[in-house]
């Protein structure tokens, strides 16, 4: 990830799946922008692996993104993601009280069918956050999802988020990506 995205190796699943994925991502943006974290957790499968590995300044591309067993900003399963969502929903969670104003932009998407019921979606994202009187943070990055397609609507079963920035410019991360 992080720039050396593989060209498509699996088949394009066709326009119906594209429409479903875009609907899922639209819904996700709406929920996150509104701070509806508890509903947002409902977009993930019970066996979700939600990770955002740290990025380091390394001499080679291979060394830039922390490996699976290394440090991340998020390394959550369903239990801890729910805990985070619950915490962020409380009024005494100072990072979102008063609430931030947030915009998410997820584009472009690349969608591949990797299994009969699983597709992989790779995308770039930009999250703009402003809070209190004038605080502003920008988070640019890349996201790779594995979506499970065997239910009434797609669910995220695996998410990898790679923020481009190495030393984060913000005093905290209170956003989900």
């Amino acid at each position: 990830m992080n720039g050396d995205r593989e060209p498509r190796r699996f088949p394009d699943p066709g326009p119906a799946v594209w429409a479903e994925v875009e609907a899922l991502y639209r819904r996700e943006c709406v929920l996150l922008q509104a701070g509806r974290y508890r509903e947002w957790v409902g977009l993930f499968t019970p066996d979700i692996s939600y990770r955002a590995p740290v990025v380091r300044v390394a001499d080679t591309r291979e060394g830039m993104v922390a490996a699976e067993e290394e440090l991340a900003y998020y390394d959550d399963d369903h239990e801890t993601l729910t805990l985070r969502a619950e915490k962020m929903s409380l009024t005494l969670s100072w990072t979102e009280f008063p609430p931030s104003r947030v915009r998410y932009f997820v584009w472009p998407l690349e969608i591949e069918r990797i299994e009969a019921t699983e597709i992989r979606v790779t995308s770039n994202f930009l999250a703009y956050q402003t809070r209190l009187d004038h605080r502003e943070h920008l988070f640019f990055g890349e996201r790779e999802d594995v979506l499970r397609m065997d239910g009434p609507s797609p669910l995220v079963a695996r998410r990898r988020i790679v923020l481009d920035r190495s030393r984060l410019a913000s005093e905290n991360i209170s956003l989900f990506f």
Partner: peptide
């Protein structure tokens, strides 16, 4: 990671206040 670091559920609030 869950509790500390910039996204930690504790440390994120420290950063906010500090």
């Amino acid at each position: 990671i869950l509790s500390f670091g910039p996204s930690g559920m504790f440390e994120q609030d420290d950063g906010e206040i500090w």
